[in-house]
């Protein structure tokens, strides 16, 4: 894996670099997916930080909750029927208390699904070596292109620098 990227001090220049890269996409023969943005904090108010906004995560969570609740209710009423003992003059499958447990398991389902969905969506955990620069921890914004097509490197460097990069680096795995 290889990449060419620039580090930017402020989001405006980073956005500029992004725009410059997108303008050059077609000419240099790479696509949006190859543009890499890494930041030390989210920049959701900027266009460069708004890639891939489409997600079904809320739906997943809701679905997880539903599944958790249904499974929970089934499990609890199953155990109550599997070993039916009378207590306190109540029915075997007690709806009110089971409601509480169903609720708790609904929430548990939703929470676990959210966590799992997050991990899957964010491709975590992933301990393989990727394009990275610790400088993003100091507030720098990394904008670059992974696996740039042959011959486009110089143009990419220029463009990245012209947007105001503090530094333009190359990453070779």
């Amino acid at each position: 894996m290889q990449a060419i990227y620039g580090l930017y001090r402020d989001p405006d220049s980073a956005q500029q670099a992004m725009d410059l890269l997108q303008q050059a996409e077609r000419g240099l023969g790479f696509n949006d997916n190859q543009i890499l943005v890494l930041t030390g904090e989210p920049y959701e108010d900027h266009a460069f930080g708004m890639q891939n906004k489409k997600t079904i995560m809320p739906w997943m969570s809701a679905g997880g909750g539903l599944v958790g609740g249904l499974l929970g209710f089934w499990f609890i009423s199953f155990t109550q029927r599997a070993y039916p003992l009378m207590t306190g003059g109540m029915q075997i499958v007690t709806k009110w208390p089971d409601g509480i447990l169903t609720y708790e398991l609904t929430m548990l389902g939703a929470i676990l699904t959210t966590v799992v969905t997050l991990l899957i969506a964010a491709r975590l955990p992933d301990w393989r070596r990727h394009v990275f620069d610790p400088a993003i921890g100091e507030g720098k914004i990394l904008i670059g292109v992974t696996d740039p097509p042959e011959g486009s490197q110089d143009e990419l460097r220029r463009r990245l620098r012209s947007a105001g990069a503090v530094e333009v680096k190359e990453f070779i795995a």
Partner: peptide, 30 residues
């Protein structure tokens, strides 16, 4: 977990935190 800080990761994390925040309040109350 190999966090890098791609916009997608940030977005999903913030999204997850928003969902969690909404979910955890009723759990705490319960």
């Amino acid at each position: 977990l190999g966090w890098r800080g791609t916009p997608k990761q940030w977005h999903r994390l913030e999204m997850a935190m928003r969902i969690m925040a909404v979910a955890i309040i009723p759990v705490a109350v319960s």
